[in-house]
Amino acid sequence: MFAFLGLFLVSCSDDDDNPEEINEEETITTMTVTLTPQGGGTQIILASRDLDGDGPDDPDITVSGNLAASTTYDGEIVLLNETETPAELVNEEIEGEADEHQFIFVVGGGLNATAAYADDESDYVSEATGTNFTTTNPVGIAFTLTTTDASSGTLGITLRHEPTKPNDGTLDGAGGSTDITQTFSLTIE
């Protein structure tokens, strides 16, 4: 009886290969938003970085400074997956599927500012066809943020996958599933 069990143990213990490490291909670890004032001034950088992806560590959020009042900023969003070396630029995938993605901007908490889309799908080359999209729904990789009076509040930036397109630019109206969402606390002075 035990000989029989022993046979099992012997015959099966030769599989000592270690498994291969997997780095998440789809994780977005880093979102960097560059706000450049039109007509010159100090660039403001908003960043969120979460190197352990779905792990327990919270994302590290930084805002480089305060916004100027009554200014229009050109915004640009860069997404990276830094678990891979070199870091993967996730923007390429978003652009290639621009018709399936959209950033939603929510200004809240009394911040005197408005966000507007500065791009549309036809600015990007479709991964599927190799040519520019012919549709013109907004995407939001490029946007503008226009400030008015001094105040403080929040700017929420959410990337939705497979939203309803076109939509009214609100989170509820867009639907879909959330790929990334971050809220930055901002001050206009």
Binding site: S48, D50, D54, P59, T178
Partner: peptide, 9 residues
């Protein structure tokens, strides 16, 4: 609850 860049879970 844990926070990731994708939101709260």
């Amino acid at each position: 609850v844990e926070f990731t860049i994708r939101g709260a879970f």
